[in-house]
Amino acid sequence: MTNYGSAIREGFSYLLNNYKEVFTIGQGLWSPWYVGNTMTDLDKEFGKDRVIDTPVSELATTGAALGAALCGKRPIVIHPRVDFGLLAVDQIVNQAAKWAHMFGGDIPLPLVVRMIVNRGGEQGAQHSQSLHSWFAHIPGLRVVIPSTPTDARDLLIAASLGNNPVVYMDDRWLYDLEEDLPPIQVNSLDDECPKIVKPGSDLTIVGCGFTTRLSINAADQLSKLGIESEIIDLRVINPLKCETIIESVSKTGRLVVVDGDWENCGIAGEVIAQVTTKIELGKLKANPARITLPSAPAPTSKVLEEIYYISDKAIVDRVIDMMK
């Protein structure tokens, strides 16, 4: 069994071993306080010139990674909190996402921006954001969110070996999740799309990253009540491919989307819009529902954290309500 954190490390190890043009750069890469067990001793194994810990300069490291990508490298720039990555938004959104298109295309830009999502731990408003929907809004920026150890490893590899800028977001609350890893599969992100991770017939629950785990936990409890949910893990939220979801909802007639980010303009609303605008009329048996973070910055106080973060119970309750 390999946990999610170590699986990310295996992805890095595979890339650094097999592709000399791969390197990683970012603040905190040599410190487990920042990157957990996802990069342990990579600097010792592959050298500090390919696993580069940096000054506190997110904008420069991201731009530098982009520049290196234009000159034949496959950099993975890392921000140990999404919140810190926000200092690099010009390079990600104005530059990387648009570079190929605004210069007429055919420009390979193999840049991965890895940002780590933190939740809870009384860390508060500026250390707990995920903001994946924000990045998914941008044409030209692929956004991937692994929810399993295998995806954590293989989507990292696919992201780095492709030719587009990719935002890769892993979630600290998943680091201990274990799985037997199959042999490495090198796929193209073009072929990656939402996946059914648990089949069911009564309703469709869609999640991404940590909320896929929550949905699976909720589905186990719902099963005991005789409700069989089909769980779909989004995996890639830009470009968003909803065929699997539409097919599933056509069968179940019910849709709940669970997203660990805010509601307004979020991916949950987008999935619901895609389904409701494309599904055959009459197939829906209930109004689709979304479960998201409440519309407030993350608090620190533990009593407020308890109500802030989504629980499997919240999903179970919502589903029971929908099935009435």
Binding site: F84, L87, A125, H127, T300, S301
Partner: peptide, 24 residues
């Protein structure tokens, strides 16, 4: 008011407008 924790301190009556953990 318990909303910020150690990294978000404020004491307006003592001229401290705010302390935040985003570096810089």
């Amino acid at each position: 008011k318990g909303m910020g924790g150690s990294m978000h301190l404020r004491s307006l009556k003592n001229q401290l407008y705010g302390t935040v953990p985003i570096v810089g």
